[in-house]
Nucleic acid binder design. Structure first.
Length: 270
DNA sequence: AAAGACACCTGTCCGC
DNA sequence: TGCGGACAGGTGTCTT
């Protein structure tokens, strides 16, 4: 479910609740997430919130001697509520604050993750090998072009590889490739520098616009107040199999590339 | 080193 | 109405 814009939306949603507060309690209802939630997580109790940031699709709640790292997987979401509100199905974990407010982790498929980490976060095994953030200057057309030389993998898989660039998931990969006129199955190493420049700009543009709309809700993504994200209405190709291309009217195709559904226009993307 | 397959898990939708 | 199968926004790990 959540790609970079949905994680960024979630971060902005929980920020006012966490700022200036102290963690009073961590309530674990179901510890079997992608990585088991261990007792280590209880070290968060009594610690003040020092900051909040996002790296790739990971949310980092920075406390005094370490912090909480949260990943939403395919179906995870965070909601802000009161600590004594009745939990719903799949509400696996609560971060209860000193004012009785609560950040509640829900994840039907349990591909998500909530773990304790100690400083420095950037050296954590899950973060150490990650590529650049797509919205920062370190991500450029030149970088993508250099990185892709000799690579035979399909360009869609290439830009979804977190060692290449983080945060680009299945929806926004299809969208950015359409916007830059590149066929998703084209070999990464056989694309010119100028086309990578266009692709880089498209990735930035689509991610920034999606953040402004609170992310994309296709099925079950929710912002922290329970509202959906509104970017679905701006999607150009994703989930539009058989529907006319907005540029040329040809039917949008769906094809599995690298085990993921890819949506594209055969006439507009080469 | 790179690329591909697979596993993890639940819910929903569609055709029969 | 029930049942089986396909599919879903991610990514670590294992095999080629």
């Amino acid at each position: 479910m959540p790609e970079l814009p949905e994680v960024e939306t979630t971060l902005r949603g929980i920020e006012p609740t966490l700022n200036g507060r102290t963690v009073r309690e961590i309530r674990v209802r179901n510890a079997s997430l992608r990585w088991p939630v261990t007792d280590e997580i209880q070290q968060a109790c009594g610690q003040a919130v020092k900051g909040l940031r996002r790296r790739a699709k990971y949310l980092l709640i920075e406390l005094e001697t370490g912090g909480l790292m949260i990943h939403l997987g395919m179906s995870g979401s965070l909601r802000v509520c009161d600590a004594d509100d009745m939990p719903h199905k799949h509400d696996h974990l609560d971060i209860v604050l000193d004012n009785n407010r609560c950040v509640r982790f829900n994840d039907p498929r349990r591909f998500g993750l909530v773990i304790w980490w100690e400083y420095p976060a950037n050296e954590h095994p899950l973060l150490r090998e990650l590529g650049p953030e797509p919205l920062l200057d370190e991500f450029s057309g030149d970088y993508l072009w250099r990185k892709s030389r000799g690579r035979r993998v399909a360009v869609k898989g290439f830009i979804m590889n977190a060692r290449v660039v983080v945060g680009v998931g299945n929806i926004y990969a299809s969208e950015a490739l359409f916007m830059s006129g590149i066929h998703p199955g084209r070999q990464a190493g056989r694309i010119s520098a100028s086309r990578y420049l266009a692709l880089t700009a498209a990735i930035r543009d689509v991610l920034e616009r999606a953040i402004r709309q609170g992310g994309t809700t296709l099925r079950d993504f929710a912002q922290t107040d329970g509202n959906p994200g509104y970017f679905a209405q701006e999607l150009l190709v994703y989930d539009r199999e058989g529907l006319p291309c907005f540029q040329c009217q040809a039917p949008i195709r769906r094809k599995v590339i690298g085990q993921r559904s890819s949506y594209y226009c055969v006439r507009c993307q080469k």
